[in-house]
């Protein structure tokens, strides 16, 4: 069906903006889920405050990370997870599962771009949630705000981290072209990302022997890098190094993504979906 040549079309961004808008509105309809996810986030902000307070109570601050830094770290990590926990290309897996992906290949659109715009709408909606969550979290804990240049580096690094996560999930979802069922694998990857990415515990607390290895893994590029920039554990002179590592992971995953998508798409077209 793709062999039939469509009349030459000028690329237009319009339909993709539309996909994103629809996804944004769709997410907004799950009101109960929205309230419960914010509620559970706040409970966990409170939980981590209590946990860190207890740990620091009888002990000196290790690794130059003060109690206040640790609480800030956990709170910002939880807020980031509102966006980072979203598997924005899940639609690929769902559509492979019910077989409807074949019809997408018949439409005059760029299919991966369609999935990305749908996911972007979803992510934008959840980014909006960060604001009320932040405001409510500020009632429970005190969060330090770093100087503007550090904050700028944090946001850049957060964006890079987001892209690493996005591409990693994209590759996982594309595995469904071959296996159809990837839910278990995805959950395992999520747990490992939370642990080795430094969402639960800052990676600088890990035993020194493993640190070199763990920092080199892509998981660290998702949560840990922006968070360590935020709390000042990574100083400005090291920015090029850590941001460079993130960019490297984006590049590597992007290349893998292109190949895996092409191979998967060929499979659908050849088999007729």
């Amino acid at each position: 069906m793709t062999s039939i040549s469509a009349p030459p079309q000028r690329f237009s961004l319009k339909p993709y903006l539309e996909f994103a808008r629809v996804a944004f509105e769709r997410e907004a309809t799950y009101r109960f889920e929205v309230f419960t996810s914010i509620g559970s986030l706040l409970v966990r902000v409170y939980l981590f405050r209590m946990v860190w307070t207890a740990l620091y109570a009888q002990n000196v601050a290790p690794k130059d990370l003060s109690l206040q830094d640790a609480i800030t770290y956990s709170t910002v990590a939880l807020l980031m997870s509102l966006v980072l926990d979203i598997d924005q290309t899940r639609l690929i897996h769902d559509k492979l599962h019910d077989g409807s992906i074949a019809t997408d290949f018949m439409k005059p659109i760029n299919v991966p771009l369609y999935f990305f715009s749908d996911g972007t709408g979803e992510v934008l909606f959840h980014s909006v949630l960060i604001l009320p969550s932040l405001a409510l979290a500020a009632l429970i804990v005190h969060i330090d705000i770093p100087p503007p240049d550090v904050l700028g580096a944090f946001f850049l690094s957060f964006l890079f981290g987001y892209l690493v996560g996005l591409l990693m999930n994209f590759i996982l979802n594309c595995i469904a072209f071959w296996t159809l069922e990837i839910h278990a694998v995805q959950l395992i990857v999520t747990w490992i990302t939370d642990l080795l990415g430094g969402q639960i515990i800052p990676l600088i607390f890990f035993p020194l022997a493993f640190q070199g290895f763990i920092f080199a893994l892509p998981f660290a590029a998702i949560y840990s890098t922006p968070l360590l920039i935020y709390v000042g554990s990574v100083t400005p002179e090291r920015y090029p190094e850590v941001l460079g590592l993130q960019v490297m992971w984006i590049a590597i995953f992007a290349v893998i993504s292109v190949f895996i998508w092409r191979a998967g798409a060929r499979r659908v077209v050849v088999q007729g979906g």
């Binding site: 207890a54 959950l187 395992i188 747990w191 490992i192 642990l195 515990i201 607390f205």
Partner: peptide, 25 residues
Amino acid sequence: GFTFIYHATALIALWIILQEFPSMN
């Protein structure tokens, strides 16, 4: 494997914290 990894990540996190901090209360 699934269940193992789930509980292992939780325990590893506890272990790492208690390497750095001598005790929790």
